[in-house]
Design a protein around this nucleic acid. Structure first.
Lengths: 266, 266
DNA sequence: GAGTGGTCTAGACCACAAT
DNA sequence: TTGTGGTCTAGACCACTCG
């Protein structure tokens, strides 16, 4: 059984600033520090943990970029953490709570899983030669027993031959790629649009043709820019919402959260 | 007329790392460095510009967090910049290009601008006492002459009394708040949903009732968490798409871009 | 004036990648 | 073995906030 780490382990292979980051995060969470409360000053943290200011500032920077604290010249570092999401929970969380956090039951049924020569349009998206073998799958995602999203995805077979004969029922594609194939998605691009359900979509999603649906297109990339996956998903409009939390940092906006009612990390 | 800055100005009030950041960004853009090309090493940059490694690393960190470069231990820093967005432009940019960058003509007409006692639901969202005076406005946003979005917004009057008698036609609310009232939005929360146009929305957006629309709710906050603005916008489904670029950094996802076909920084 | 975070210097040792 | 970025130290001066 591990005891809670309360000091820096100078013999650990984990960087000091990373240890301090975790320490401070725990402190904020477990001591229930509320918004506006002060963190110890940088020099205090230096003395307290016996580390240099570089380490302290590196840890604080990570905390700030996660939106947990806010640093102010001449004043200090204040906790800002739960504030925004709390305010949200009170106001906007209504018909579709954040189910990743609340652990609502999700299920996936595989409608189709085949290896095909890549269609031209998909080939250009995935930057493949036409006819290159790809895994093509159609899946239907359920939340709490209700069909929520219909997903069509394409993955180049050569990237992960093991994918050809794996059963992805109730399994995450990303997790499979990462653990079994050693493939790590490094960036992604997603486009959201509004649409109306066609006959087939309506039948699967158990809604009426013409009912509003959210169309989500996604391309995921490896570190070097190689496309890994393209998917096209249609979400029931009446059961889906996308939530985005932004924070201004150094003249930029930074993503704090990107909540999706249905788990999209296939 | 300014000449292009090619060295660090040691007398400037702009931090060195910020100057170097801009310098490198310009270099990447103007020399057309392509994905995979190497940046000078950190020690080379130190010598070249006569600055310490701390400054160099600070600049590189900013570039990396923007997704322009990628640093690799033992190897160096490589440019990764345009890659993803280029891949996108080839594939997904279709019926609605990024108009912020392309400078498409946008126009805003103010349908309503009044001071009212805050309705109960809005009051709870903005964390106000009921009946507190708020600026209530309805605006219709056009792009290239077409009506695209219908926006209803609420701003507490006390935050910016000057707002009561200003004409926001073709003017950004955020810009007004920042320059005239000294109010800076520090964070925001946005929720996207699919919906169908009702009678009134359809009339303004020049579509048919029942046609798909995107519903966008937003709450903006000051640094201390004080809500500044609530708005509810309905976008024409056939003319709107939301694009999100994500990048994994240090076990987190970071926002690279959040493109909206219609400027939402009111 | 005292304390804070923002910036910067001039070193150092390390793990990792390439040769 | 050499060079890279990753981590870390021990200082320094500054602008800013607050009493």
């Amino acid at each position: 059984m591990q005891k809670m780490m309360k000091t820096i382990d100078f013999h650990s292979y984990i960087p000091y600033y990373r240890q301090l980051y975790s320490l401070l995060k725990d402190t904020i969470a477990k001591q229930g520090l509320k918004s506006g409360q002060m963190l110890p000053s940088e020099s205090e943290l230096c003395q307290q943990y016996g580390i240099s200011r570089t380490v302290v500032r590196n840890a604080l920077q990570d905390l700030e970029s996660e939106g947990l604290i806010r640093r102010r010249k001449g004043k200090g570092s204040i906790v800002t953490g739960p504030k925004i999401s709390e305010g949200l929970a009170q106001t906007l969380t209504g018909f579709y709570q954040d189910m990743a956090e609340r652990g609502l039951a999700t299920r996936t049924s595989v409608l189709l899983h085949e290896t095909i020569p890549c269609p031209g349009k998909i080939a250009s998206i995935l930057n493949l030669a036409p006819q290159t073998p790809v895994i093509h799958s159609n899946r239907l995602r359920y939340v709490e027993g209700e069909p929520i999203a219909l997903v069509t995805s394409y993955v180049p077979l050569q990237l992960c031959p093991a994918l050809e004969h794996v059963d992805l029922t109730d399994r995450s594609l990303y997790e499979f790629l990462e653990t079994t194939c050693g493939i790590t998605i490094m960036s992604a691009n997603r486009v959201l649009e509004s649409s109306s359900a066609d006959e087939s979509q309506a039948r699967h999603l158990e809604i009426e043709p013409g009912d509003p649906v959210m169309k989500l297109e996604s391309i995921s990339y490896l570190e070097d820019g190689t496309p890994v996956e393209y998917f096209l998903a249609f979400h029931r409009g009446d059961r889906t919402r996308f939530e985005i939390n932004l924070m201004r940092v150094r003249d930029r906006w930074r993503l704090l959260g990107w909540n999706q009612p249905v788990d999209l990390s296939f």
